[in-house]
Nucleic acid binder design. Structure first.
Lengths: 237, 237
DNA sequence: ACAGCTTCTTGATCTCGATCAATCGCGCCG
DNA sequence: CGGCGCGATTGATCGAGATCAAGAAGCTGT
């Protein structure tokens, strides 16, 4: 992926500067397919906390072009488990409906490029690569879910929190001015707890511990700089 | 699925009486595709505890035609998490390799119908339905993994054990002579613990509790009869 | 700048499940 | 039939993380 933008004149104008032109679903589309898709796809913006009706009613897919999305499942009595985070440029959604529906919520400010089910079905019927791309995405999600099952089933509280920091750093972290890996947590302590299978107090204590031990620096709750990455990795189990 | 066996004379002989002719991958194959596949597929038998080299080296798929398979992932220090159970007639495996490899082990006596990667790639290239079938299987596995994340992250020990009994009952349970739902646990207490994120002692205690409370009857460690299914469901969270 | 809210942190105590430690019971083989 | 061995059960105790309970620190808007 050497081209940051797409210079081909056949590429739709609003895809040329899209952050995920070369990610998500669009990376496997040629300009002709892009035109076909771009006319039907709807770009939408969402504030943190907004529920995204992806799975209900109209089943389809959406490219996450900016921000992070929280997928969760709740028990009848209200206990909640966050079962996944989707970051740009992930492809989110599914072709077939599921018996165990998830709720999807914008964690940060989010931009989506939504693809209606009918349009996607047409593209899927015609394109080899799209079908394989959807399969690849679901396999990637499956790997991520199984990795996280290890975290939930077998790691200590300290290891879980370290694992989450590394997960977010891997997906959205950037090297700051001093060359350290910096990241912004897309979710609150309460949501972190629901992702990690802990309480928010335990999450807070573990973050404080990492701070006191000089492994990370925290600025204003959401902003984290990793000072000692090997130490963090060692603490992640 | 009204036909227990396939009477079409074009169907390969050893597929006609196969338990999963109408399950797994084969349910979407026509007799011509079946012939093409049957010549290449290798049927193998495995004893409990045997490691199945599905994911290593030659990546491919296998139909589970009998028995149950345990998929697990281990941490460097030896802690283990079972991330899935595959029962007949599940389709197991993947087209693309993964960075986080699983180990697959026969839980019970198992029969597989292995499909070499090269053969499957050929079929996938030619058949629409096969591609969608592989996508459907991976989405089903993803749903199962996310459901289990709720169990691991948010349920109590009692709820986890009840959830496992219901899961096995759903996949392999049969009504016994008295009309009660009966099942055979495919895994030891230790493996149940590794699936549930508990210790084997806790699993044993919870099973004893269900027994003392008259919810289930256990005969010889592995055989379970569910006496009160609503009560079990209520205890599963 | 300062209310007033929400979110996070920290502390004290309690509890569920882990750990340590005997048995138990069933299958296997001499 | 009896001894041996492995997996399961049961008991006693411990401890990580939950729960209960104050405060502190950020973000609003005025």
């Amino acid at each position: 992926m050497t081209r940051p933008h797409d210079a081909d004149p056949a590429t739709p104008v609003h895809c040329r500067t899209c952050q995920v032109r070369h990610g998500g679903l669009c990376e496997v589309l040629d300009p002709i397919e892009l035109v076909r898709l771009a006319g039907q796809a709807r770009r939408t913006r969402h504030d943190p906390g907004e529920t995204l009706a992806i799975e209900s009613g109209e089943v389809g897919y959406a490219n996450v072009t900016r921000g992070a999305i929280k997928l969760s499942r709740v028990l009848r009595d209200g206990r909640q488990q966050v079962v996944g985070l989707q970051f740009a440029p992930d492809l989110m959604g599914r072709l077939f409906s599921s018996e165990s529906p998830l709720s999807a919520e914008a964690a940060t400010e989010v931009e989506l490029c939504r693809i209606p089910r009918s349009v996607l079905e047409g593209l899927v019927a015609d394109s080899e690569r799209i079908k394989l791309r959807l399969l690849a995405q679901s396999l990637r999600d499956l790997d991520a879910a199984r990795d996280w099952m290890v975290t939930l089933g077998r790691k200590t509280a300290a290891e879980r929190v370290a694992s989450l920091l590394l997960l977010v750093a891997t997906r959205t972290g950037v090297a700051d001015s001093a060359g350290q890996l910096a990241l912004d947590l897309p979710i609150s302590r309460a949501d972190m707890a629901d992702f990690l299978g802990l309480t928010l107090e335990t999450v807070s204590r573990q973050i404080s511990r990492l701070r006191h031990d000089g492994v990370i620096v925290v600025r204003g709750h959401r902003s984290v700089v990793i000072l000692n990455q090997p130490a963090l990795q060692a603490r992640a189990g």
